[in-house]
């Protein structure tokens, strides 16, 4: 049956567009794995996270980064690990490294991952995102759950003018349209 092996497909086929002074591209090689913190097990998971990935526990508004792995806090008992991992077994890998310290759910396939970069990126987000993205209020490494054009979004600031935007896979086309339209609307 191996010749029948199923081929993976990115939600937007790896789309990449330069729009004015902003660049928007899909980063489908990123895997997302959610970790639920067992009741009363925060300290143990903290140790395990440190040991396995060298990461501190992320704060609700502040992600942690080590190498190419990001950890974001997405709920009072929930966090998200983001790292490049092309095969569909990211959850299995994390599970193996954290053993029973967290309840692991592979979220990779539930999301579309867009990287918005360039000088006009912030201007585009101004027409999309209700959050205050001034550097002092939302520094590099800051993360938040927010809403853009009615779609739920997890936003992470990778650098001053580089943002990772995560939104639901099924509405990926609508989300792309919303962000791309915002880039097009920027007046130079």
């Amino acid at each position: 049956m191996d010749e029948n092996r199923l081929q993976a497909k990115a939600p937007l086929g790896g789309r990449d567009r330069q729009i004015g002074r902003a660049r928007l591209r899909e980063r489908d090689e990123l895997s997302l794995v959610s970790l639920a913190i067992p009741l009363g097990g925060e300290a143990e998971l903290g140790d395990a996270l440190k040991q396995a990935y060298g990461l501190d526990m992320p704060d609700p508004r502040r992600g942690r980064c080590k190498g190419d792995i990001w950890a974001l806090r997405t709920g009072h008992d929930q966090m998200l690990l983001i790292f490049p991992h092309p095969t569909p077994d990211a959850g299995v890998h994390v599970n193996a490294r954290l053993s029973t310290r967290a309840y692991v759910t592979d979220q990779t396939d539930g999301w579309v991952k867009l990287l918005l970069s360039g000088a006009a990126g912030l201007d585009a987000l101004e027409r999309l995102c209700p959050l205050d993205l001034e550097l002092a209020a939302f520094p590099v490494g800051a993360s938040a759950r927010t809403v853009m054009e009615h779609l739920g979004v997890i936003l992470l600031r990778l650098e001053q003018d580089r943002f990772l935007l995560l939104s639901a896979r099924s509405s990926a086309e609508s989300f792309w349209d919303a962000v791309a339209m915002s880039c097009e609307f920027v007046v130079d």
């Binding site: 029948n4 092996r5 199923l6 993976a8 939600p11 569909p88 592979d106 896979r169």
Partner: peptide, 27 residues
């Protein structure tokens, strides 16, 4: 299909002999 992770449920909404098979959305 030779290694793609999946979940299989034997449930039926139609009343027929039925399964629901799930694979990661990318597949």
């Amino acid at each position: 299909f030779g290694g793609t992770p999946a979940r299989l449920f034997r449930i039926s909404f139609s009343g027929e002999l039925a399964y629901e098979v799930a694979v990661p959305a990318r597949f």
